[in-house]
Nucleic acid binder design. Sequence first.
RNA 1: GCCUCGGUAGCUCAGUCGGUAGAGCAAGGGACUGAAAAUCCCUGUGUCCGCAGUUCGAUUCUGCGCUGAGGCA
Length: 310
Amino acid sequence: MRRLKVIVILGPTATGKSDCGIMLAQKLGGEIISGDSMLVYKHMDIATAKPNARELSEIKHHLINILEPSEKFNVVDFKERAALLIQDINARGHVPIIVGGTGLYIKALLENYDFAQAQAVGNLRVALENYAIREGNQALHKRLAKLDANAAKNLHSNDRRRVIRAIEVAMQGEEVSQTHAKESPYDAIVFGLHMPREILYPRINKRVDKMVEAGIFEETKKLLAMGVPEDAQAMKSIGYRQVLEYLHDEYDKNTCISKIKQATRNFAKRQFTWYKKMSYIHWIEVAEPSVPEIYVAEMLRVLEQKRKLR
RNA sequence: GCCUCGGUAGCUCAGUCGGUAGAGCAAGGGACUGAAAAUCCCUGUGUCCGCAGUUCGAUUCUGCGCUGAGGCA
Protein backbone atom coordinates (compact mmCIF):
# COMPACT_ATOMS: atom_id res chain seq x y z
CA MET A 1 0.00 0.00 0.00
CA ARG A 2 1.32 3.39 -0.93
CA ARG A 3 1.33 5.55 2.15
CA LEU A 4 -0.36 8.91 2.11
CA LYS A 5 1.74 11.99 2.53
CA VAL A 6 0.91 14.39 5.30
CA ILE A 7 2.69 17.21 7.07
CA VAL A 8 1.99 18.03 10.71
CA ILE A 9 2.71 21.17 12.71
CA LEU A 10 2.14 20.78 16.42
CA GLY A 11 3.34 22.44 19.59
CA PRO A 12 2.01 23.87 22.81
CA THR A 13 -0.48 26.68 22.78
CA ALA A 14 0.73 30.17 21.80
CA THR A 15 3.79 29.11 19.83
CA GLY A 16 2.41 30.35 16.52
CA LYS A 17 1.34 27.13 14.81
CA SER A 18 -1.46 28.75 12.85
CA ASP A 19 0.73 31.38 11.23
CA CYS A 20 3.33 28.83 10.24
CA GLY A 21 0.66 26.51 8.89
CA ILE A 22 -0.83 29.15 6.66
CA MET A 23 2.55 30.26 5.39
CA LEU A 24 3.65 26.72 4.67
CA ALA A 25 0.37 25.99 2.90
CA GLN A 26 0.91 29.02 0.69
CA LYS A 27 4.36 27.81 -0.30
CA LEU A 28 3.31 24.25 -1.00
CA GLY A 29 -0.20 24.62 -2.29
CA GLY A 30 -1.49 22.95 0.83
CA GLU A 31 -4.74 22.72 2.73
CA ILE A 32 -4.96 22.84 6.49
CA ILE A 33 -6.68 20.28 8.65
CA SER A 34 -7.09 21.54 12.19
CA GLY A 35 -5.88 19.10 14.82
CA ASP A 36 -7.53 20.90 17.64
CA SER A 37 -10.43 19.74 19.75
CA MET A 38 -11.92 23.19 20.27
CA LEU A 39 -11.65 24.86 16.88
CA VAL A 40 -14.40 22.61 15.56
CA TYR A 41 -16.96 24.80 17.31
CA LYS A 42 -18.69 27.73 15.66
CA HIS A 43 -19.06 30.99 17.61
CA MET A 44 -16.18 30.09 19.90
CA ASP A 45 -13.51 32.30 18.42
CA ILE A 46 -11.75 34.39 21.02
CA ALA A 47 -11.04 31.96 23.83
CA THR A 48 -9.95 29.30 21.38
CA ALA A 49 -7.58 31.65 19.54
CA LYS A 50 -9.15 30.60 16.28
CA PRO A 51 -7.56 31.99 13.08
CA ASN A 52 -9.57 34.99 11.90
CA ALA A 53 -11.95 35.10 8.93
CA ARG A 54 -9.34 36.47 6.56
CA GLU A 55 -6.85 33.77 7.45
CA LEU A 56 -9.50 31.11 7.12
CA SER A 57 -10.39 32.33 3.64
CA GLU A 58 -6.82 32.71 2.39
CA ILE A 59 -6.10 29.03 2.74
CA LYS A 60 -8.58 26.20 2.74
CA HIS A 61 -9.11 25.08 6.35
CA HIS A 62 -10.87 21.90 7.44
CA LEU A 63 -12.41 20.82 10.74
CA ILE A 64 -12.93 24.39 11.88
CA ASN A 65 -16.44 25.76 12.56
CA ILE A 66 -18.14 22.48 11.80
CA LEU A 67 -20.24 22.05 14.95
CA GLU A 68 -22.54 24.01 17.22
CA PRO A 69 -21.08 24.68 20.69
CA SER A 70 -23.56 22.34 22.32
CA GLU A 71 -22.55 19.38 20.16
CA LYS A 72 -20.07 16.67 21.04
CA PHE A 73 -16.90 15.73 19.28
CA ASN A 74 -14.21 13.20 20.11
CA VAL A 75 -11.03 11.50 18.96
CA VAL A 76 -12.78 8.91 16.88
CA ASP A 77 -14.75 11.58 15.04
CA PHE A 78 -11.52 13.42 14.46
CA LYS A 79 -9.63 10.40 13.27
CA GLU A 80 -12.32 9.38 10.80
CA ARG A 81 -12.83 12.83 9.36
CA ALA A 82 -9.14 13.60 9.16
CA ALA A 83 -8.42 10.29 7.42
CA LEU A 84 -10.99 11.06 4.74
CA LEU A 85 -9.69 14.57 4.30
CA ILE A 86 -6.11 13.41 3.92
CA GLN A 87 -7.13 11.02 1.16
CA ASP A 88 -9.23 13.63 -0.50
CA ILE A 89 -6.61 16.37 -0.43
CA ASN A 90 -3.93 14.01 -1.70
CA ALA A 91 -6.25 12.89 -4.50
CA ARG A 92 -6.66 16.51 -5.56
CA GLY A 93 -2.90 16.83 -5.74
CA HIS A 94 -2.64 19.12 -2.74
CA VAL A 95 -0.63 18.73 0.43
CA PRO A 96 -2.55 18.09 3.66
CA ILE A 97 -1.10 19.98 6.59
CA ILE A 98 -2.40 19.12 10.03
CA VAL A 99 -2.05 22.02 12.42
CA GLY A 100 -2.97 21.64 16.03
CA GLY A 101 -2.02 20.95 19.56
CA THR A 102 -4.33 18.21 20.77
CA GLY A 103 -1.87 15.45 21.60
CA LEU A 104 -4.30 12.57 21.67
CA TYR A 105 -5.92 13.51 18.38
CA ILE A 106 -2.70 13.74 16.45
CA LYS A 107 -1.09 10.73 18.04
CA ALA A 108 -4.18 8.61 17.47
CA LEU A 109 -4.29 9.63 13.83
CA LEU A 110 -0.61 9.23 13.00
CA GLU A 111 -0.09 6.04 14.97
CA ASN A 112 -3.42 4.63 13.87
CA TYR A 113 -4.96 3.85 17.22
CA ASP A 114 -7.44 1.01 16.89
CA PHE A 115 -10.30 2.18 19.08
CA ALA A 116 -12.78 -0.29 20.49
CA GLN A 117 -16.03 -0.45 18.55
CA ALA A 118 -18.10 -0.06 21.70
CA GLN A 119 -20.38 2.95 21.44
CA ALA A 120 -20.81 5.50 24.19
CA VAL A 121 -24.00 4.57 26.00
CA GLY A 122 -25.48 7.63 27.64
CA ASN A 123 -27.62 6.08 30.33
CA LEU A 124 -25.04 3.45 31.18
CA ARG A 125 -22.53 6.21 31.80
CA VAL A 126 -24.97 8.05 34.01
CA ALA A 127 -25.73 4.84 35.92
CA LEU A 128 -22.06 4.11 36.48
CA GLU A 129 -21.45 7.70 37.47
CA ASN A 130 -24.20 7.47 40.07
CA TYR A 131 -22.85 4.17 41.30
CA ALA A 132 -19.45 5.81 41.84
CA ILE A 133 -21.03 8.70 43.70
CA ARG A 134 -23.00 6.32 45.90
CA GLU A 135 -20.47 3.54 46.48
CA GLY A 136 -17.21 5.32 45.83
CA ASN A 137 -14.52 5.21 43.18
CA GLN A 138 -12.94 2.13 44.71
CA ALA A 139 -16.12 0.13 44.32
CA LEU A 140 -16.43 1.17 40.68
CA HIS A 141 -12.83 0.26 40.09
CA LYS A 142 -13.48 -3.20 41.57
CA ARG A 143 -16.29 -3.73 39.13
CA LEU A 144 -13.89 -3.02 36.30
CA ALA A 145 -11.35 -5.42 37.79
CA LYS A 146 -13.86 -8.23 37.36
CA LEU A 147 -14.50 -7.35 33.73
CA ASP A 148 -11.04 -6.35 32.49
CA ALA A 149 -8.32 -6.93 35.04
CA ASN A 150 -5.59 -5.41 32.90
CA ALA A 151 -7.47 -2.21 32.33
CA ALA A 152 -8.15 -1.93 36.05
CA LYS A 153 -4.47 -2.37 36.75
CA ASN A 154 -3.53 0.43 34.38
CA LEU A 155 -6.07 2.91 35.65
CA HIS A 156 -6.10 4.76 38.93
CA SER A 157 -9.37 4.26 40.77
CA ASN A 158 -9.94 8.01 40.95
CA ASP A 159 -9.78 8.35 37.18
CA ARG A 160 -13.50 7.74 37.12
CA ARG A 161 -13.95 8.82 33.55
CA ARG A 162 -11.58 6.23 32.13
CA VAL A 163 -12.81 3.54 34.49
CA ILE A 164 -16.34 4.13 33.22
CA ARG A 165 -15.29 3.94 29.60
CA ALA A 166 -13.37 0.72 30.26
CA ILE A 167 -16.47 -0.82 31.86
CA GLU A 168 -18.61 0.40 28.98
CA VAL A 169 -16.28 -1.30 26.51
CA ALA A 170 -16.10 -4.49 28.55
CA MET A 171 -19.88 -4.71 28.77
CA GLN A 172 -20.00 -4.67 24.99
CA GLY A 173 -17.64 -7.61 24.77
CA GLU A 174 -14.30 -5.90 24.19
CA GLU A 175 -11.38 -4.91 26.38
CA VAL A 176 -9.72 -1.50 26.22
CA SER A 177 -6.55 -3.09 27.49
CA GLN A 178 -6.42 -5.22 24.36
CA THR A 179 -6.52 -2.36 21.87
CA HIS A 180 -3.30 -1.66 20.05
CA ALA A 181 -2.16 0.68 17.37
CA LYS A 182 -2.15 -0.69 13.83
CA GLU A 183 0.39 0.08 11.17
CA SER A 184 0.25 3.71 10.14
CA PRO A 185 -1.11 4.45 6.68
CA TYR A 186 0.75 7.75 6.62
CA ASP A 187 4.08 8.94 5.45
CA ALA A 188 4.12 11.84 7.87
CA ILE A 189 6.64 14.48 8.62
CA VAL A 190 5.96 16.10 11.95
CA PHE A 191 7.22 19.53 12.95
CA GLY A 192 7.03 20.71 16.53
CA LEU A 193 7.33 24.33 17.54
CA HIS A 194 9.29 24.57 20.74
CA MET A 195 9.87 27.41 23.15
CA PRO A 196 11.48 27.46 26.58
CA ARG A 197 9.01 28.21 29.31
CA GLU A 198 10.68 31.46 30.32
CA ILE A 199 9.56 32.74 26.94
CA LEU A 200 6.37 30.76 26.47
CA TYR A 201 4.73 31.70 29.76
CA PRO A 202 4.99 35.48 29.37
CA ARG A 203 3.72 34.99 25.83
CA ILE A 204 0.72 33.08 27.12
CA ASN A 205 -0.01 35.80 29.67
CA LYS A 206 0.12 38.42 26.97
CA ARG A 207 -2.16 36.44 24.73
CA VAL A 208 -4.76 36.08 27.46
CA ASP A 209 -4.69 39.84 28.01
CA LYS A 210 -5.39 40.25 24.32
CA MET A 211 -8.31 37.84 24.59
CA VAL A 212 -9.76 39.98 27.33
CA GLU A 213 -9.45 43.06 25.13
CA ALA A 214 -10.97 41.17 22.24
CA GLY A 215 -13.98 40.38 24.40
CA ILE A 216 -13.69 36.93 25.93
CA PHE A 217 -16.21 37.90 28.63
CA GLU A 218 -18.71 39.15 26.07
CA GLU A 219 -18.19 36.07 23.94
CA THR A 220 -19.01 33.80 26.85
CA LYS A 221 -22.17 35.76 27.62
CA LYS A 222 -23.13 35.63 23.95
CA LEU A 223 -22.84 31.84 23.96
CA LEU A 224 -25.04 31.61 27.03
CA ALA A 225 -27.58 33.95 25.42
CA MET A 226 -27.59 31.66 22.39
CA GLY A 227 -28.70 28.88 24.67
CA VAL A 228 -25.47 26.94 24.95
CA PRO A 229 -25.75 24.98 28.21
CA GLU A 230 -23.16 25.74 30.84
CA ASP A 231 -22.29 22.08 31.12
CA ALA A 232 -21.64 21.66 27.40
CA GLN A 233 -18.34 19.94 26.67
CA ALA A 234 -16.98 23.00 24.92
CA MET A 235 -17.83 25.29 27.83
CA LYS A 236 -15.43 23.30 30.00
CA SER A 237 -12.48 24.50 27.99
CA ILE A 238 -9.97 27.05 29.19
CA GLY A 239 -11.32 30.57 29.20
CA TYR A 240 -15.04 29.84 29.10
CA ARG A 241 -14.84 27.74 32.23
CA GLN A 242 -13.18 30.49 34.25
CA VAL A 243 -15.46 33.23 32.91
CA LEU A 244 -18.42 31.08 33.88
CA GLU A 245 -17.05 30.81 37.40
CA TYR A 246 -16.59 34.57 37.45
CA LEU A 247 -20.19 35.04 36.35
CA HIS A 248 -21.18 32.85 39.28
CA ASP A 249 -19.32 35.25 41.57
CA GLU A 250 -16.71 32.74 42.57
CA TYR A 251 -14.06 35.41 42.21
CA ASP A 252 -13.48 38.88 40.77
CA LYS A 253 -12.48 39.79 37.26
CA ASN A 254 -8.75 40.10 37.85
CA THR A 255 -8.63 36.76 39.60
CA CYS A 256 -10.54 35.31 36.68
CA ILE A 257 -7.96 36.58 34.22
CA SER A 258 -5.10 35.19 36.33
CA LYS A 259 -6.86 31.86 36.51
CA ILE A 260 -7.19 31.72 32.74
CA LYS A 261 -3.48 32.45 32.40
CA GLN A 262 -2.61 29.83 34.94
CA ALA A 263 -4.83 27.18 33.34
CA THR A 264 -3.28 27.93 29.96
CA ARG A 265 0.23 27.57 31.36
CA ASN A 266 -0.69 24.26 33.00
CA PHE A 267 -2.17 23.16 29.71
CA ALA A 268 1.03 23.95 27.82
CA LYS A 269 2.91 21.84 30.34
CA ARG A 270 0.58 18.88 29.74
CA GLN A 271 0.99 19.29 25.99
CA PHE A 272 4.77 18.95 26.35
CA THR A 273 4.20 15.69 28.20
CA TRP A 274 2.43 14.28 25.15
CA TYR A 275 5.08 15.41 22.74
CA LYS A 276 7.93 13.94 24.76
CA LYS A 277 6.68 10.51 23.81
CA MET A 278 6.45 11.33 20.12
CA SER A 279 10.06 10.74 19.22
CA TYR A 280 9.51 11.39 15.53
CA ILE A 281 8.86 15.11 16.00
CA HIS A 282 11.28 17.39 14.19
CA TRP A 283 11.62 20.27 16.65
CA ILE A 284 11.98 23.86 15.59
CA GLU A 285 13.09 26.41 18.15
CA VAL A 286 10.86 29.49 18.22
CA ALA A 287 12.08 32.84 19.53
CA GLU A 288 10.28 35.88 20.89
CA PRO A 289 9.22 37.76 18.90
CA SER A 290 8.61 34.84 16.59
CA VAL A 291 9.50 34.99 12.91
CA PRO A 292 7.36 32.47 11.02
CA GLU A 293 9.35 33.03 7.81
CA ILE A 294 12.41 31.47 9.43
CA TYR A 295 10.56 28.46 10.78
CA VAL A 296 8.78 27.81 7.52
CA ALA A 297 12.07 28.06 5.64
CA GLU A 298 13.45 25.43 8.01
CA MET A 299 10.44 23.21 7.32
CA LEU A 300 10.92 23.56 3.58
CA ARG A 301 14.57 22.65 3.94
CA VAL A 302 13.71 19.49 5.86
CA LEU A 303 11.03 18.55 3.34
CA GLU A 304 13.45 19.06 0.46
CA GLN A 305 16.04 16.90 2.16
CA LYS A 306 13.53 14.16 2.65
CA ARG A 307 12.48 14.29 -1.00
CA LYS A 308 16.08 13.77 -2.11
CA LEU A 309 16.36 10.68 0.04
CA ARG A 310 13.52 8.96 -1.77
C1' G B 1 10.05 58.08 71.93
C1' C B 2 7.33 54.08 74.50
C1' C B 3 4.10 49.60 74.34
C1' U B 4 2.03 45.23 71.89
C1' C B 5 2.07 41.56 68.18
C1' G B 6 4.65 39.57 63.94
C1' G B 7 9.27 38.13 60.75
C1' U B 8 9.40 29.88 59.17
C1' A B 9 9.02 26.70 51.48
C1' G B 10 7.55 31.21 45.60
C1' C B 11 2.65 33.00 48.60
C1' U B 12 -0.68 32.52 53.14
C1' C B 13 0.34 30.38 57.59
C1' A B 14 0.89 26.12 61.40
C1' G B 15 4.55 24.05 64.67
C1' U B 16 8.80 22.72 67.61
C1' C B 17 7.06 22.19 76.59
C1' G B 18 15.16 23.26 73.43
C1' G B 19 17.10 17.50 69.81
C1' U B 20 17.53 21.75 62.60
C1' A B 21 10.10 21.62 60.61
C1' G B 22 4.73 20.88 57.85
C1' A B 23 -0.24 22.15 55.61
C1' G B 24 -3.08 24.73 51.75
C1' C B 25 -2.19 27.27 47.36
C1' A B 26 1.50 28.10 43.60
C1' A B 27 5.23 25.28 40.95
C1' G B 28 7.48 20.79 38.86
C1' G B 29 7.07 15.65 37.01
C1' G B 30 3.92 11.88 34.99
C1' A B 31 -0.39 8.99 32.96
C1' C B 32 -3.59 9.08 28.86
C1' U B 33 -6.85 4.12 22.98
C1' G B 34 -14.67 7.14 21.95
C1' A B 35 -15.30 14.04 27.13
C1' A B 36 -8.42 15.24 25.96
C1' A B 37 -8.32 23.07 26.31
C1' A B 38 -11.04 17.09 29.49
C1' U B 39 -9.81 13.62 33.44
C1' C B 40 -6.39 11.62 36.87
C1' C B 41 -1.71 10.44 39.76
C1' C B 42 3.06 11.68 42.19
C1' U B 43 6.53 15.36 44.40
C1' G B 44 7.65 19.82 50.24
C1' U B 45 15.72 21.19 52.79
C1' G B 46 13.86 25.79 53.73
C1' U B 47 20.78 30.64 56.21
C1' C B 48 12.92 28.76 60.60
C1' C B 49 15.32 37.86 59.86
C1' G B 50 20.68 38.90 61.78
C1' C B 51 24.32 38.92 65.72
C1' A B 52 25.63 37.59 70.60
C1' G B 53 24.51 34.84 75.24
C1' U B 54 22.77 30.42 78.10
C1' U B 55 23.12 25.11 76.79
C1' C B 56 26.07 18.91 75.14
C1' G B 57 22.65 21.06 71.53
C1' A B 58 18.82 27.11 69.81
C1' U B 59 14.45 28.03 64.61
C1' U B 60 12.43 27.37 69.72
C1' C B 61 14.83 30.63 75.86
C1' U B 62 17.47 35.66 76.96
C1' G B 63 19.70 40.34 75.19
C1' C B 64 20.74 43.67 71.26
C1' G B 65 19.90 45.02 66.25
C1' C B 66 17.16 45.17 61.57
C1' U B 67 12.19 45.05 59.59
C1' G B 68 6.46 44.98 59.12
C1' A B 69 1.57 45.99 61.41
C1' G B 70 -1.21 48.18 65.26
C1' G B 71 -1.66 51.18 69.77
C1' C B 72 -0.09 55.26 73.29
C1' A B 73 2.16 59.99 73.57
